[in-house]
Amino acid sequence: MSELLGRVSIELVDIAAQVERLHPLVSAQSGQLAAGDPHYAQALQSFDHIEQKLRCLASYLNDLGAAAAPGWRLEPHAALAAITLSDLASRLAGQNSEPLRSASPGDFELF
């Protein structure tokens, strides 16, 4: 259980980092829009709040995993079937031990 919660925590940290890397893009577009549109300013604040919540959830799950009893087991395979991104499912299952890597500038992945 501890290991599974740790893997989920790592994924959440990675998503939070990806959201954080989008801040400059969103901020660059916000100039006059934020000043004239309170809904846009709220959307920017929500974007930042999403990142903060992801980091908090990651920390929470990591701490739960660290506090879990050593013998506590959970069979995650049925739940993993609901994960439609194969690379994410592999990492959560512990089958892919490669560290998460961010794309180089200019790289993109088509899906």
Score class of each variant (00 low, 15 high):
90 S>Y: 06
70 P>F: 05
50 I>C: 07
37 D>H: 07
23 H>E: 14
7 R>Y: 05
73 R>C: 05
22 L>K: 12
1 M>P: 01
79 A>Q: 09
51 E>Q: 12
70 P>W: 06
107 D>Y: 10
99 P>E: 06
29 Q>L: 15
43 A>S: 07
19 V>M: 12
50 I>V: 15
110 L>C: 03
6 G>Y: 03
89 A>Q: 08
21 R>K: 15
96 N>Q: 11
83 I>W: 05
67 A>L: 12
56 C>P: 00
53 K>F: 11
17 A>C: 09
85 L>N: 12
80 L>N: 01
85 L>K: 10
53 K>I: 13
9 S>Y: 03
73 R>F: 05
103 A>H: 10
78 A>C: 04
108 F>P: 00
81 A>W: 02
78 A>H: 11
45 Q>M: 12
14 D>Y: 15
27 S>V: 08
5 L>H: 01
79 A>Y: 10
37 D>V: 03
67 A>K: 13
38 P>D: 06
21 R>A: 15
8 V>P: 00
11 E>M: 12
76 P>C: 03
62 N>V: 00
90 S>F: 03
21 R>Y: 05
40 Y>H: 09
41 A>S: 09
91 R>A: 02
87 D>Y: 04
3 E>T: 09
41 A>L: 12
108 F>W: 12
47 F>I: 01
87 D>M: 04
48 D>Y: 08
10 I>N: 07
19 V>F: 07
92 L>W: 07
74 L>I: 13
91 R>L: 04
6 G>I: 02
92 L>F: 08
90 S>V: 01
84 T>K: 15
50 I>Q: 06
30 S>D: 02
80 L>T: 00
79 A>E: 05
64 L>R: 07
48 D>R: 14
1 M>V: 04
27 S>D: 14
111 F>S: 08
13 V>K: 14
92 L>P: 00
96 N>P: 00
81 A>V: 03
35 A>H: 09
107 D>R: 09
11 E>L: 15
66 A>S: 10
106 G>H: 05
108 F>V: 00
1 M>T: 03
53 K>V: 15
12 L>E: 01
68 A>Q: 04
24 P>F: 08
26 V>H: 10
32 Q>V: 09
68 A>N: 00
41 A>Y: 02
99 P>K: 13
24 P>Q: 04
88 L>M: 11
51 E>Y: 02
84 T>C: 08
110 L>R: 08
76 P>N: 01
76 P>R: 03
102 S>Y: 14
31 G>I: 06
58 A>D: 01
70 P>K: 06
99 P>A: 10
22 L>N: 05
98 E>D: 15
93 A>C: 02
63 D>E: 12
7 R>T: 00
98 E>N: 14
70 P>I: 04
1 M>N: 03
18 Q>N: 09
43 A>M: 13
17 A>G: 05
71 G>Y: 06
7 R>H: 03
93 A>F: 05
2 S>C: 08
68 A>H: 02
80 L>S: 02
72 W>Y: 11
56 C>W: 15
88 L>T: 06
22 L>Y: 05
37 D>N: 14
20 E>M: 11
111 F>E: 04
58 A>M: 01
82 A>E: 11
31 G>T: 06
41 A>T: 03
48 D>T: 10
35 A>F: 08
86 S>D: 10
111 F>G: 07
86 S>Q: 13
28 A>N: 11
111 F>M: 04
7 R>D: 01
30 S>E: 02
52 Q>A: 15
82 A>N: 10
29 Q>R: 13
